Simulated scan of single mutants.
Amino acid sequence: MSEAFPRHVLCVLSSGLGLLEMEEIASGFGGFVLDREYSEDEPDPRMPEAFEASMSAASFDEADRTAVEFHDTVGYLLSAPMMQALAFDTSRRLLAATAALLRSGATAVKNESSGITHGRDRWLALADRAADATDEDLADALVAAWVKRPIYDGQVLYSCGMHLLGAPEVEIEVGAAPPAMDELPELVAHLDTLAIYLLTDPRAAEIEDGAGFRMAEDAPRWSLRTGACDRYDEDDLFFNPYGYVRLTPAD
């Protein structure tokens, strides 16, 4: 296993909320600091394209797009590099901080460490879910908030962001033909089921290649395959030191 420690890099846009206020709000949730090298009290014309590339279309409305276009401040908030045992709780606290920022004048947020963003209403709904959740429900909310999926590489659908929760990425083999749109919801449900299993079931720490996995007792059997992260360099924010776990069709 790599010795790299993942960290959150959160891009926060605002119109009227200054950098010092951003840092003060975020620091109240424990350990989040402003990156003073890259944060700016001025607009960045690259932001609309950057947010669009981060799957903003999934939950952005016209007000969200307008907020990105007409921001006047760009702040980058950092978590400390996270040991595996601390990642889940750090991500829970950062989601609460994200909601506090949005309710205090921030207008848009994306995570540079997984390449995901949500519209304002979606961020707030996820934070509200996580605030009252435990166990599998909390894991589900944090996966939805921080993990970008599905991403297709020509053979598998995979995630990016599970490293921020202290777990391997999740993948599922689909073959060379891109999945049809009506197939995606079920495939994403498979990824999410595996992700929640990795985050909540103690047996997940002992997965071996070839082990069986079912979404439910009466569901078809899949085989599990593990491997090291080979999509990103070790110094990339997307790099997952815990590797991946892939669902492959059982023989």
Rank of each mutant, 00 (worst) to 15 (best):
residue 113 S to R: 11
residue 26 A to P: 10
residue 49 E to W: 12
residue 129 R to M: 14
residue 180 A to Y: 07
residue 8 H to D: 01
residue 88 F to R: 08
residue 115 G to N: 09
residue 32 F to N: 10
residue 16 G to E: 02
residue 91 S to T: 05
residue 227 G to A: 13
residue 138 L to A: 12
residue 51 F to L: 00
residue 234 E to A: 15
residue 70 F to W: 11
residue 169 E to Y: 09
residue 235 D to R: 14
residue 139 A to K: 01
residue 145 A to C: 09
residue 136 E to D: 11
residue 114 S to L: 08
residue 194 L to D: 00
residue 105 G to L: 09
residue 142 L to D: 02
residue 49 E to R: 10
residue 30 G to E: 12
residue 242 Y to W: 13
residue 82 M to Y: 03
residue 43 P to S: 01
residue 173 E to L: 15
residue 47 M to L: 00
residue 36 R to K: 13
residue 143 V to K: 02
residue 22 M to L: 07
residue 251 D to T: 09
residue 223 S to M: 08
residue 91 S to D: 03
residue 152 Y to A: 04
residue 72 D to M: 02
residue 223 S to G: 12
residue 129 R to D: 11
residue 51 F to I: 08
residue 139 A to I: 13
residue 194 L to A: 10
residue 71 H to W: 00
residue 28 G to M: 00
residue 110 K to W: 09
residue 112 E to Y: 11
residue 145 A to G: 05
residue 193 T to L: 10
residue 102 L to R: 14
residue 222 W to V: 07
residue 163 H to P: 00
residue 36 R to T: 10
residue 19 L to Q: 01
residue 78 L to F: 14
residue 112 E to N: 09
residue 71 H to E: 07
residue 77 L to M: 11
residue 37 E to Y: 13
residue 39 S to I: 09
residue 122 R to P: 03
residue 236 D to S: 15
residue 59 S to W: 04
residue 208 E to Q: 15
residue 165 L to V: 05
residue 17 L to V: 04
residue 245 V to H: 07
residue 151 I to E: 13
residue 216 A to Q: 01
residue 196 I to P: 04
residue 45 P to Q: 07
residue 210 G to K: 01
residue 72 D to S: 05
residue 229 C to N: 13
residue 245 V to F: 06
residue 237 L to G: 06
residue 51 F to T: 02
residue 68 V to Q: 06
